[in-house]
């Protein structure tokens, strides 16, 4: 057995933090923010299949930056925990706070017990009845949790990105404005000499938790819907009153046009058809 030398705990923790921070700052960033119709996630992601943003439960979404294998591991754990609790109790009893707590404990335990901490930052967001009820939790590699006020940024240069969001974010933004702001924030860093750059639509991963939907609220925005939102063509469809989820309908059309099976188009009042939330309510 190798000889164990005494090392100051402070030093160990500092080293681990540094390793995790370095790992996270190398990756591309992600943001989450509330808007009038729900919660928006935008991540810079070159892959269309290795997702950084995903669905956890009816009203809970997940976004992460850092090492894919590590946050994928956490995402699966979250889905399993949410589905287990939803089955044991009721779908309404699955909350973002419980999930954030479980993630905090897990990340904290890994940070202090394992040789190598997880090089990830994750965001757990839950959409509420109004923008004021939305919850956005940010979890760092060491298990620390922050309840973010309506918007958050994570990944490399998160602070600079968050500053852009801070200046312009309003909770009553339309979806188109929110997407534009998110992309503006993400592209405000990383250009030549710290200047802004442009990010193409196919390098973005965008998803929403749609406040107006019952049941599973998570939707991905891809293809034409996304480019329309970015180019401002979607303004007509999305700037309507918050009660009418016109953007949702548009998103559905896009989802249908793709080959992959997607949830079908649904009106706002149509109950979800999964896991009995609708007809067992």
């Amino acid at each position: 057995m190798a000889m164990q030398f005494y090392t100051n705990i402070d030093q160990i923790m500092r080293d681990r933090s540094e390793l995790a921070r370095k790992g996270i700052s190398r990756g591309r960033s992600a943001v989450a923010l509330t808007y009038t119709g729900g919660v928006l996630f935008v991540a810079e992601n070159l892959s269309s299949s290795l997702h950084k943003i995903s669905e956890i439960y009816d009203r809970i979404g997940f976004a992460a930056v850092g090492r894919y294998n590590e946050f994928e591991n956490l995402r699966r754990a979250g889905v399993r925990m949410a589905d287990l609790n939803g089955l044991s109790y009721d779908r309404r009893d699955v909350t973002g706070l419980a999930l954030a707590n479980a993630y905090a404990q897990t990340l904290g335990a890994i940070f202090s017990d394992q040789q190598k901490p997880f090089e990830v930052e994750i965001c757990v967001a839950e959409v509420g009845a109004t923008p004021a009820d939305d919850q956005i939790y940010r979890l760092a590699y060491d298990g620390s949790v922050n309840d973010e006020p309506g918007f958050m940024a994570m990944g490399g240069q998160a602070e600079a990105i968050a500053n852009v969001l801070k200046g312009a974010h309003k909770s009553d933004m339309s979806l188109a404005d929110a997407v534009k702001l998110a992309v503006k924030a993400l592209s405000s860093v990383g250009g030549e000499g710290g200047a802004a750059r442009t990010i193409a639509a196919n390098q973005l991963e965008v998803a929403i938790l749609d406040r107006a939907r019952r049941g599973r609220t998570f939707r991905r925005l891809t293809g034409k819907v996304l480019t329309d939102l970015l180019n401002g063509n979607g303004a007509a469809a999305t700037s309507s009153s918050p009660a009418k989820p016109a953007d949702t309908e548009a998103a559905d059309t896009a989802a249908d046009s793709k080959d992959t099976p997607k949830p079908p188009a649904k009106g706002p009042d149509k109950p979800t058809s999964s896991a009995g939330s609708a007809d067992l309510e």
Partner: peptide
């Protein structure tokens, strides 16, 4: 089941 792990982290079966 999460309550059984003294560290409070999600048990291995979850991850």
């Amino acid at each position: 089941a999460a309550g059984f792990d003294p560290s409070g982290r999600l048990p291995d079966v979850f991850t």
